[in-house]
């Protein structure tokens, strides 16, 4: 199991006392599958993913079992956490422009991890990145590397971010609303890419989204979260047609649906 979370509790200190954010979350992700984590704002879905990489405020209190690629993270020491962040697990976020330095060229930003953290030479890192660019469907990689973020569209930037995330050959990919900021047509294409990468590299993907429709259609299994706890867990194929929990039913009812198409164009 790449990601194994059991009974995870997280709270932060506030002016009014300890405030619980996660109240006993349990979920897991195996290699080769895409697992969806669905919730509205405030459900704790993003926090769960960040907890997996210990990207939390220092004064947050964490308890429960949290194992990532075999490493115990909840009580883990600093060295283990660093090792994990560096290699086996990678995370991509909703807004690529928020993680890329606007005054640095794409090539420099994307090879940063390899060069500064893994000690590779710039030339070797760039060569590796060119290969990854091709893998994620970016053409003319050499030219792209010399460009700045503002010159690329959102979809292309997200592919760059994905390529950079793959540069350390991770086993687990945490994707926090990776397509929510993209146009719908671009979104579909990036999702196809992620699916292909997952298949070719046997990754485990935790796919976080607010869109239950999307999770049901795209993910093998789906967890639904509400106010810090998982309320439903079903295969993607059935969660939309046969929701068990009231909250999931409410989400299904609220989601606008397109009508059936009348004819299939030849």
């Amino acid at each position: 199991m790449l990601l194994d979370i059991e009974n995870l509790h997280l709270s932060v200190p506030t002016a009014d006392g300890q405030r619980p954010i996660l109240r006993g979350v349990s979920l897991n992700v195996e290699a080769g599958e895409t697992v969806g984590l669905v919730g509205e704002s405030g459900s704790g879905k993003s926090t769960t993913a960040r907890a997996a990489l210990r990207l939390l405020p220092d004064d947050a209190e964490l308890s429960g079992r949290l194992t990532v690629c075999g490493h115990e993270m909840a009580g883990g020491d600093r060295a283990e956490i660093r090792a994990l962040r560096l290699g086996k697990a990678a995370m991509i976020f909703q807004e690529p422009r928020a993680v890329l330095n606007p005054v640095r060229r794409i090539g420099d930003s994307a090879t940063e991890r390899l060069v500064h953290v893994h000690g590779e030479s710039k030339a070797a890192a760039k060569k590796q990145l060119l290969g990854l660019f091709e893998e994620v469907g970016l053409r003319d990689g050499a030219r792209l590397m010399r460009m700045y973020p503002h010159q690329l569209s959102g979809g292309m930037l997200q592919r760059v971010v994905i390529a950079a995330a793959l540069s350390t050959n991770p086993q687990l990919l945490l994707a926090d609303e990776p397509t929510s900021a993209l146009d719908v047509t671009t979104q579909a294409e990036v999702l196809v890419l992620l699916r292909r990468l997952r298949r070719e590299r046997s990754l485990g993907v935790l796919f976080i989204t607010h869109d239950l429709h999307l999770a049901a259609a795209y993910c093998d299994r789906v967890y639904v979260m509400r106010e810090g706890i998982v309320v439903e867990h079903q295969p993607g194929a059935t969660i939309f047609t046969d929701p068990k929990h009231d909250y999931t039913r409410a989400l299904v009812a609220a989601a606008p649906e397109l009508p059936e198409r009348e004819e299939v164009r030849g």
Binding site: T47, L56, P57, E95, A98, V99, S109, E112, R113
Partner: peptide
């Protein structure tokens, strides 16, 4: 930059 994480939720 690329390891920079957007501000915590």
């Amino acid at each position: 930059s690329i390891d920079a994480v957007p501000p915590p939720v």
